[in-house]
Simulated assay, not measured.
Amino acid sequence: MNVKNLTISALLATIAFASPGFATEKKITISVVGFTADGKQMLVDMNDSNYGRGLRLYDVETGRPAKKSRLIEYERSAKVPTFKRYKRRYKIKDPGMESMKSADKKMAFFAVEKGERLVIAVTDYQRLGKVTDVELRQDKETEKRAEGRLKTIMWTTDRKTMVLVISQKMKGQFTSEIDTLHYVQFKKDRISWVQADPDLAGAEQRKKGWWPF
């Protein structure tokens, strides 16, 4: 699967500590407002606990802010008119859809931490499969990895593009919880399916190491 990390660089600024014993928390939540008709760009809503709220247009495939786009700051009270104005300006025609299941409801997606990566997995209720994986952030000093979880999945209406909303939480003196977006061009025939051993069951399956990720 083709995966691109959609880095929200405009909001990832360095925060200074007020005193040696004071730990500052940083939390950035992001969501996809909608897509252009061709699915090549999307409007992203960001809420930074230290810098406030903002909208920005992103190129889906490159994972970078669209050319000449800028961060549009807004107050909570102005959310509705701001969204309306910039959805019209950037021609956001496809509202997309949020779902952790396939269009036919026959497959469900979830995530599993595996070492340095967060594996995005899928089940058709008979098998397990791997869609892709995402590297977890690492603290340069402690070398600890962040805790990752799949918050939700946004799709274009035609279900050809999926955007994973992943939260990564890093604990320590400086605690941060940051959402990131990851693009996947989804095709069922690219899923790496693994069939469980029919002679083993439940906990014994996992103990034997059949877990495919």
Rank of each mutant, 00 (worst) to 15 (best):
A201N: 15
Y86D: 06
D48S: 12
E113L: 09
D189N: 14
Y86G: 05
D94K: 03
V131E: 01
S192H: 14
I15F: 04
L12F: 08
Q185P: 11
R88I: 09
P65L: 07
Y90V: 00
D197F: 01
K67R: 14
R159V: 08
K93D: 12
H182F: 10
R56I: 15
W210L: 08
F174G: 10
A111F: 02
V184F: 05
G63W: 01
K130A: 00
G34A: 02
P81Q: 02
D104K: 01
G172K: 01
A111R: 02
F186K: 03
T24S: 14
L150A: 05
G172A: 04
S69M: 03
K105P: 01
V80H: 08
L136K: 05
L136V: 00
K208T: 07
T82N: 08
R76E: 14
Y125G: 04
S192L: 15
S167H: 12
I120H: 03
Q168F: 04
V112M: 10
S31M: 09
K40T: 10
A201W: 11
G148I: 03
K26C: 00
L71Q: 08
Q41V: 05
V134L: 00
W193M: 04
I120D: 05
L128V: 14
A111H: 05
M162L: 02
P95C: 06
A201R: 15
I72Y: 09
Q168D: 01
E113I: 11
Q168C: 03
W155E: 05
I92G: 06
S167R: 15
T175K: 11
R53C: 04
T36I: 10
K91A: 12
K68E: 14
N47H: 13
R85W: 04
I15L: 12
A111Y: 06
R53L: 01
G96P: 00
M170L: 13
L181C: 08
I166V: 15
D133G: 00
E135R: 05
E143V: 08
E141P: 05
A121G: 10
I30D: 10
E135T: 03
K79H: 09
D48Q: 04
T152I: 10
Y125C: 06
G39I: 04
G172S: 06
V32S: 04
Y125N: 08
Y125K: 07
N47W: 10
M154P: 01
K27M: 13
F22H: 14
P95H: 06
A10R: 14
S49K: 03
S176W: 02
L181W: 07
D139I: 03
K188Y: 14
P95V: 03
D94R: 07
T36A: 11
T24G: 13
R56V: 08
L164S: 01
E147C: 02
K93H: 11
K106A: 14
K140F: 15
Q205I: 13
P198K: 02
W211H: 11
V3R: 09
K68F: 12
A203E: 14
Q173M: 15
L181N: 00
D45A: 11
S167E: 14
I72C: 05
V44E: 02
N5A: 12
V3F: 10
I72L: 12
S102A: 01
E204T: 11
G115H: 02
V119C: 09
R159W: 12
Q173F: 13
P65F: 08
E141M: 06
S99I: 07
D139T: 01
G209V: 01
K130I: 06
F110T: 03
V134Q: 04
T180W: 11
